[in-house]
Design a binder for these strands. Structure first.
Length: 818
RNA sequence: GGAAGAUUAGCUCAGUCGGUUCAGAGCACCUGCCUUACAAGCAGGGGGUCGACGGUUCGAAUCCGCCAUCUUCCACCA
């Protein structure tokens, strides 16, 4: 018997396989005659580090891909990272700031050089971390959304939609992030209820000559610092209280600018004072009112959220400082009627957590109407299946109410918008500067390269992510639907399953469906498995600021990657949030140890070719064979329904209860003279076969320990590289054999389920009197101590053997030994 | 404010067609055991008015209504 420690040591085993699996070509896949099974990774931020959400997501991905690989499919999991413009750029800016460099002092080229340096230095750490988790990606296919050819795909896509007339430039009220200094999409704004104040201000009615009358109205606002941008005060036309106001003008407090009273039914009579200050430049609704009433627009807030010269007063002050100061000024001027505490929803930037400033600006948009219809139809028709399907409702709602997609971002890190402005303001959109110049010269042959100017903005990161399932295989295709897909794309596309979080169902999943339809006429995947959010034990979201998120690498070091994977999967039924608790990882670790020790037992068996197989052993073999088959069927069924944690639990119980507690306890040889008796050949071979099958069954979930033991169990030959080197999975599930079952039953070998609970056992009448005593008697001469705690399988209760007279034991009870 | 989903043991969750595979699993807990694979273990045990109320039915965890609580998404009333 080999010397194996009684405790499984994951780090030893994992280091070994980790480095093997990192070898080039190990999980590499090329198109061949087999059926492909493909997953593209939801690309993590290139500068991100592994958190529990990644662990959940990538464990699920890896389970699926390893399962497919063992099923004999040509499994390909494409890894990669996302350039994440806002997140990465703000990290680079912060880092430069530490070095005393401000972004404004750099040219675009200089800044990008820093950014790439940073990316080379810190980027891709997360992919190495994923390998620690056992992710069996095809590392040779690693892609980055800003790889040159992938960027070209993005540019081509822009040109494609522009020429199709779906991309336009327009002035819109956008969500401005004054910290990130960029517009963000509606989806990137998080509304949070925020404690603020409701200021009631006096607006005096104008006397018509720049002076004020003694009449005034009270306007309630949460943003007094924007009064200088007011274009009107609006009342509801049906508000009888203010009938006298109609046609009058009022003066903006402090600056005494005259603005008209307008009537608009948007104003609710019952809310606030019934008077609404209309500030078209700084509120989306006010902007809409402004358009209706043709009001002038005064923009008083600059990109950094400071008041600009249009504000007349408090120029240069930050908007929140200005709010405090203006409160004081108003109060001193006797224009502040009262201040109430007020909780109102305020939009925050998802990336920088800055308060979003509604701001008018010129942006690029992609028309969504037609695309959304396609994406909706794909899910409604079931061509793309959402798991769990409760998300179909939210998906439909979103798709039916989608607005045009603002695709420009005022950043440098990303794909620059391929639009060039001619001196007269004409826009040409082409894939590169040369083509743009060529197009420009068709308009004005005198133009030179110096005369045309490229748009400064870059594209939204999702504008590259939505091409991901296509561009990782064939970056030449997006934007060129007339091209023939290359061999990779033709073979791997559409991919099979996508595992991702529901938070990016619209950002990413829906848009990938749109792009897939646009360029290939096919959905990029058939199943979308939506995971839950990883929360801590008491239900809080994992977050850095709360400090409740464990570092997955620490966990892996402590418990092993297999244990971490199990810990995540145990509690992750699809779509439910995950309540992470370290004790689940412990459970995983314990299971690893159980497997390890069962292996120690099995490899310690001495085999005798001459020994006859005891009847108990032969029925145990038959019983377990049936049990194994039926469990394999169950597990397959669970997998087919994406019930991964159920699949895991089925194998867990099969391995632990049925195999270890029942089967091994029955067949393991007795001791004589302090030495174990040898095991007969038939039982031994069967046992090895079962163990082999069990390892393969649990391998997708626990790749490290199963790889180690399976390689050790029998000579496996040289490990092949390049393809999956596992045998094509356990043979198709054998049918459950009723004969074996009844034989096992007649021998008193009971499946665990049958005797776990007393009632059930009684009802089924499985137990014969004396059965347990029989086992106890046999065990008695094995060891004195064993008597007190007879090693019976779980669930085999003492309570069933109330009558303990030794004499009642039936003679023929051949369970544990010959 | 609108929508969707959830509520089953201390915790996390299964429960498919309304009925002898319906009170289930894992963990946790309690008791006894360092035993020759494993104390990261073994054996045994306790534990639930299936959120409340009403209805349909011969029969309801399951179907319907209503209420309560929770979660998420959408919207933003200044």
């Amino acid at each position: 018997m080999k010397e194996l420690s009684a405790k499984y040591n994951p780090s030893e085993v994992e280091d070994k396989w980790y480095s093997k699996w990192m070898e080039k070509k190990f999980f590499h896949s090329e198109p061949d005659e087999r059926e492909p099974y493909t997953i593209v990774i939801p690309p993590p931020n290139v500068t991100g580090i592994l958190h529990m959400g990644h662990v959940l997501n990538n464990t699920l991905n890896d389970v699926l891909i390893r399962k497919a690989r063992m099923d004999g499919k040509n499994a390909c999991w494409v890894p990669g990272t996302d350039h994440a413009s806002i997140a990465t750029e703000s990290k680079v800016v912060a880092r430069l700031k530490e070095q005393g460099i401000s972004k404004e002092d750099l040219t675009r080229e200089e800044f990008l050089r820093y950014a790439w340096e940073w990316k080379e230095e810190h980027g891709g750490i997360i992919l190495k971390q994923l390998r620690k988790l056992g992710a069996s990606c095809d590392w040779d296919r690693t892609r980055f959304t800003m790889d040159p050819d992938l960027s070209e795909a993005v540019i081509s896509t822009f040109v494609h939609f522009y020429k199709k007339g779906l991309i336009y430039r327009g002035v819109r009220m956008v969500n401005w992030d004054p910290v990130g200094l960029t517009a963000v999409s509606d989806e990137e704004v998080i509304h949070k209820d925020t404690q603020s104040k409701f200021y009631h201000l006096r607006y005096y009615v104008s006397d018509g000559n720049g002076g004020r009358t003694d009449k005034y109205i009270v306007v309630a606002t949460t943003r007094p610092e924007t009064i200088m941008a007011d274009a009107a005060v609006s009342i509801n036309p049906d508000d009888e209280r203010y009938g006298w106001l109609k046609g009058k003008k009022v003066l903006i407090p402090l600056i005494n600018k005259e603005i008209p009273i307008i009537e608009d039914s948007y104003v609710e009579i019952g809310f606030g004072t019934g008077c609404l200050k209309v500030t078209p430049a700084h509120d989306a609704n006010d902007y809409a009112i402004g358009l209706r009433h043709n009001l002038p627009i005064t923009d008083i807030i600059d990109d950094h959220g400071r008041l600009n010269e249009n504000a007349v007063i408090l120029i240069g002050e930050d908007r929140f400082v200005a709010r405090k100061k203006i409160e004081k000024m108003l109060s001193e001027a006797g224009l502040l009627e009262k201040v109430e505490d007020y909780v109102s929803p305020v939009g925050y930037s998802e990336r920088t957590d800055a308060v979003i400033e509604p701001k008018l600006s010129t942006q690029w948009f992609l028309k969504m109407e037609g695309l959304a219809k396609v994406a909706l139809d794909s899910v409604e028709s079931g061509r793309t299946r959402l798991i769990p399907d409760k998300y179909r409702n939210t998906y439909r709602h979103w798709m039916e109410n989608v607005r045009d997609w603002c695709i420009s971002r005022q950043l440098w890190w990303g794909q620059r918008i391929p639009a060039w402005y001619l001196p007269d303001g004409t826009i040409v959109v082409e894939e590169n500067a040369e083509k743009a110049l060529e197009a420009a010269r068709k308009i004005d042959p005198a133009l030179t390269a110096a005369d045309i100017r490229q748009d400064e903005d870059v594209l939204d990161t999702w504008f590259s992510s939505w091409l991901w399932p296509i561009s990782v295989f064939d970056p030449g295709l997006p934007g060129h639907p007339e091209h023939k897909p290359n061999a990779d794309l033709a073979y791997y596309y559409p991919t099979n399953d996508l595992v991702t979080g529901p938070d990016i169902l619209f950002f990413w999943v829906a848009r990938m469906i749109m792009a897939g339809d646009e360029f290939l006429g096919k959905e990029p995947f058939s199943n979308v498995y939506l995971t839950g959010i990883v929360r801590d034990k008491i239900g809080r979201k994992m977050s850095k600021t709360l400090g409740n998120s464990p570092d997955p690498l620490d966990l892996i070091a402590k418990y092993g990657a297999d244990a971490v994977r199990i810990g995540m999967l145990l509690c992750s039924s699809a779509g439910n949030d995950i309540f992470y608790d370290e004790s689940q990882v412990e459970q995983g670790r314990n299971f690893c140890n159980k497997i390890w020790n069962s292996y120690r037992l099995i490899t310690g068996f001495e085999v005798s070719d001459s020994a006859a197989q005891p009847a108990a052993a032969s029925s145990a073999v038959e019983w377990f064979r049936a049990k194994l088959s039926s469990t394999i069927e169950t597990v397959e069924d669970h997998y087919s329904k994406f019930r991964i944690s159920d699949a895991l639990m089925s194998v867990y119980r099969l391995f632990w209860d049925d195999f270890c507690s029942w089967y091994l306890e029955i067949v393991k040889p007795a001791y004589a003279d302090g030495k174990p008796l040898p095991l007969d050949r038939a039982t031994y071979d069967a046992t090895i076969g079962f163990f082999d099958a069990l390892l393969r069954l649990i391998h997708p979930v626990m790749p490290f320990i199963t790889e180690e033991l399976w390689q050790d169990l029998a000579p496996r030959g040289r490990i092949r590289s390049g393809r999956h080197r596992r045998p094509p999975r356990h043979a198709s599930a054998e049918k459950y054999s009723p004969e074996a079952a009844s034989l096992a039953e007649s021998q008193g070998i009971l499946p665990r389920k049958g005797c776990r609970r007393r009632q059930e056992t009684r009802r089924r009448g499985f137990h014969r009197r004396g059965e347990c005593l029989g086992r106890r008697r046999v065990l008695h001469d094995r060891h004195e101590r064993t008597l007190r705690s007879a090693r019976r399988p779980r669930g085999h209760r003492r309570g069933d053997c109330k009558d303990r007279e030794g004499s009642r034991v039936p003679e023929a009870f051949p369970r544990l030994r010959p």
